[in-house]
C-alpha cells in the first residue's frame, strides 16, 4: 500500500478521468487534496467522493496563473506546505498535419506543457513546498514516444513534457523535489470517448487492437502515480514510466 498520510497534494484535471482517480486514491491513502478543474459540477463530485478531510477544490482555468498562485498561497497559509503535485489536466486534439497551425499548437501546449511547468514552478518556491521534499508527477502519454496519424500536436506536447521533467528533476533535486512522468496508453476516460467519436471506426479498432491487455482504467494509472508521490519512491526522479497494457511493447 502507498502511504500518503499527512501529505498535501495539488491535482490539476481533478474533475475527470485520471486526475479524479488519482485524487480519490491519494485521499484513500491519507493525503489531503487541492483539486483544480474548470467544470464545477464534476469537480465538486470528485471532492464529495474523497475519503478523509482537509480537502479543497477550486473551479479555475489552470492557465490563469495569477489566480493559481493566489490559491496556492492561501492554501499554504491555511493548511501548510505542499508535498506533491500531479499535473493531469490535458487536452487532446486529432488534427491532420495539413491543419496543424501554430495557434492549435499553442492551445494544446498551453495546458499540457506550459501550465504543468508553471504550476510546478509556483509550487516549488521556498515557503510553499515542504522543505523536507516533495514529488511532482506529470501525466504525459505513450504518445510522447510513439506516433499516430493526426497526433502531431498532441505527441509533441507530451514529448516536451517528458523530456522537460528530466531537466527539472536535476534542478529541483537540491530541494529534494522529485519529478517524474507517467506515460499511459489508452485509458477509458472522457478524453478517449471524445477521441473515439472523432475518428473513423477502423482507426478506433486499430488503437484498441494495439493494447494487448485492453484499454486501461483510470485507477490503473492512479496506483502508479500514488506510488511516485509516496516516500517509497524516494530514490526515483527524472524518470518516465510507461503504463499501457503492452501498447508500446
Amino acid at each position: 500500500m502507498n502511504n500518503l498520510q499527512g501529505k498535501r497534494i495539488l491535482v490539476t484535471g481533478a474533475s475527470s478521468g485520471i486526475g479524479r482517480a488519482v485524487a480519490q486514491q491519494a485521499a484513500s491513502y491519507g493525503a489531503s487534496l487541492i483539486l483544480l478543474g474548470r467544470n464545477k459540477e464534476r469537480l465538486k463530485a470528485t471532492y464529495d467522493s474523497l475519503q478523509g478531510s482537509g480537502h479543497e477544490f477550486y473551479t479555475i482555468d489552470i492557465t490563469d496563473y495569477t489566480r493559481v498562485d493566489e490559491i496556492i498561497r492561501s492554501s499554504v497559509a491555511t493548511f501548510g506546505f505542499i508535498d506533491g503535485f500531479v499535473h493531469s489536466a490535458g487536452i487532446e486534439k486529432t488534427i491532420p498535419f495539413n491543419a496543424s497551425t501554430p495557434n492549435l499548437f499553442k492551445e494544446v501546449f498551453e495546458v499540457n506543457v506550459f501550465a504543468g511547468f508553471e504550476i510546478a514552478r509556483l509550487l516549488s518556491k521556498k515557503n510553499i513546498v515542504n522543505p523536507s521534499g516533495a514529488s511532482h508527477v506529470f501525466i504525459s502519454s505513450v504518445s510522447a514516444v510513439s506516433g499516430e496519424p493526426g497526433k502531431i500536436i498532441y505527441c509533441s506536447s507530451k514529448s516536451a513534457l517528458t523530456t522537460g521533467i528530466k531537466a527539472l528533476a536535476l534542478e529541483l533535486a537540491i530541494k529534494k523535489i522529485r519529478c517524474n512522468c507517467v506515460l499511459p496508453g489508452c485509458v477509458d476516460t472522457d478524453m478517449v470517448k471524445k477521441l473515439f467519436a472523432s475518428i473513423p471506426i477502423e482507426a478506433k479498432q486499430s488503437i484498441i487492437n494495439k493494447h494487448p491487455l485492453g484499454i486501461g482504467q483510470p485507477e490503473d494509472v492512479a496506483f502508479l502515480v500514488c506510488f511516485l508521490i509516496s516516500d517509497k519512491a524516494k530514490w526515483i526522479t527524472g524518470s518516465e514510466y510507461i503504463i499501457d497494457g503492452g501498447y508500446s511493447s
Partner: peptide
C-alpha cells in the same frame, strides 16, 4: 480515406465551430 475524414472534421471545426463525430461523417 481516414485522414480525409479527420481533415473534414478539422475543417468544419475551424470554419463552423462545430464538432462532428466520425459516425456522423460515416
Amino acid at each position: 480515406d481516414s485522414l480525409a475524414v479527420m481533415s473534414i472534421i478539422a475543417f468544419v471545426d475551424e470554419n463552423f465551430k462545430m464538432s462532428l463525430t466520425a459516425s456522423q461523417l460515416n
